[in-house]
Every structure is written in C-alpha cells, then in structure tokens.
C-alpha cells in the first residue's frame, strides 16, 4: 500500500492534445471526467502540425459547412483558423472544467502528435490525444490490455461508468485494422503499447477516437 503526498496529488495532470478544435471536442468530456476522478489539473494543448509549414500552397479540401470545396492552403488562412480553434478550445475547456471546479490551463504548441505529447508528459500524467470519426458515433470505452484487471481495464470501467457507456477490454495485441469498423468512444492504451511508437500511431489512425495514454503505474 502506498500513501500519496499532497504535493504528488497537486502536481498530477491530465493533458489533452489535439491538432484542431474538431478533434478536441469529443475528448473534452473524457478529459474533464478523468481530471475529476484523478483530482488532477487539466491542461489543454492545441498542437500545430509542423508539416503545415511545408504544405503552404497545397490543396485544401474544406470540411464543415463548406465541405468538399477546395482552396489553396495559405499561411494567413491557417494562422487565422488556428487562432479561432484555440479560442474555441479554451472556451469549451473553461466551461466544462469550471462547472466541476477543476483547475485548468490551455496553451498552443508546435509538434506532431503523438510525439509532442509523449515528449511533454511527466510521470503520473494522463495523456489524451484528441481524434474523432466523421460521424458522431457512440460506442464503448475500450482498453487494450491482457486480462480484465489491469490498470487500463479498470480505468476503462471507471470512465465508462462515469460517461454512461459500456467498457470493453481487447487483447493488447489486437491489430490496428480490427479497430477500424468499431465505434469507439475512447481507447485506453497501456504503457506497453505506448512504448511502441509505430503501433501507437497505427492504433490512433485506426481507432479515430480520443485515445488515452494511461499514466504509468
């Protein structure tokens, strides 16, 4: 049995990374719930993909209300869009966290996900990578872990209860392609998966949902 000190509790964080506000949206509820459960501070990070720098002038196929139309990607346009997303991200975080009196902060950073997240996390931090599907699907919270009693599985059950979802545990070795047809509300990856960057990226791309990198231990 371990006893947690007050300073440890105070320094715990839930880091929510997203490349755009659209990806952050579905993850904010999860992040707030997790921060409440962990009694941790919530930190939102809007990550600017460094590849955008090189992609200036590339074709930009619009999503949202102007979906399907094409424009040329310009630095100004991108800069304005990131600023708008940052405001929306921050505002939504404020509203959700304030309601439950959770300490929160927000910032922007440059770097590709998940490398940026893995680089910034500290021991004990929970990291959520915002991602989403094209349709607002509602599915279980899935943990990839061997056995039903591991930390990822327990976390999945706790979160599912709080979010009124089902929890499901799949073997840690489940291929990424097997996640593609599933509607997943959140995917929880244990430390073992986090240590394999290529598999991590493949799983994130396949699940296309908020991905929680559970804290070590």
């Amino acid at each position: 049995m371990t006893t947690e000190t007050r300073s440890e509790a105070a320094s715990r964080r839930v880091l929510l990374f997203a490349g755009c506000y659209a990806d952050a949206g579905p993850a904010i509820g999860l992040a707030v719930t997790l921060a409440q459960q962990m009694q941790a501070a919530l930190e939102g990070v809007l990550a600017l993909d460094p590849r955008m720098e090189a992609a200036e002038g590339a074709a930009l196929v619009m999503a949202g209300r102007a979906r399907g139309t094409t424009l040329a990607l310009s630095r100004e346009r991108l800069s304005l869009a990131y600023a708008a997303d940052a405001r929306a991200f921050r505002s939504r975080l404020d509203a959700a966290a304030a309601r439950l009196s959770i300490r929160w902060s927000f910032r922007t950073d440059t770097g590709a996900l998940p490398d940026l997240a893995l680089g910034l996390r500290r021991p004990g931090d929970a990291v959520i990578l915002g991602h989403r599907r094209f349709l607002p699907l509602r599915g279980p919270v899935i943990a990839l872990e061997e056995g039903e009693d591991g930390p990822a599985a327990r976390l999945a059950r706790d979160l599912a209860r709080a979010l009124k979802l089902r929890a499901r545990v799949l073997p840690a070795g489940t291929p990424a392609a097997a996640l593609e047809p599933l509607a997943i509300s959140a995917l929880i990856l244990p430390q073992s998966v986090q240590d394999d960057p290529a598999r991590l990226v493949a799983l994130i791309d396949a699940a296309r949902c908020p991905v929680l990198l559970s804290p070590a231990g």
């Binding site: 659209a22 590849r51 992609a55 196929v61 990607l73 708008a84």
Partner: peptide
C-alpha cells in the same frame, strides 16, 4: 499525405 487542419484536409505531396 492527407493532413488534418482546423479548416479541413490539406493534400500535400
């Protein structure tokens, strides 16, 4: 490459 941006998807070689 299909890059996700706040506005949509950028297509870059």
């Amino acid at each position: 490459a299909i890059l996700r941006t706040p506005m949509g998807f950028a297509l870059a070689p």
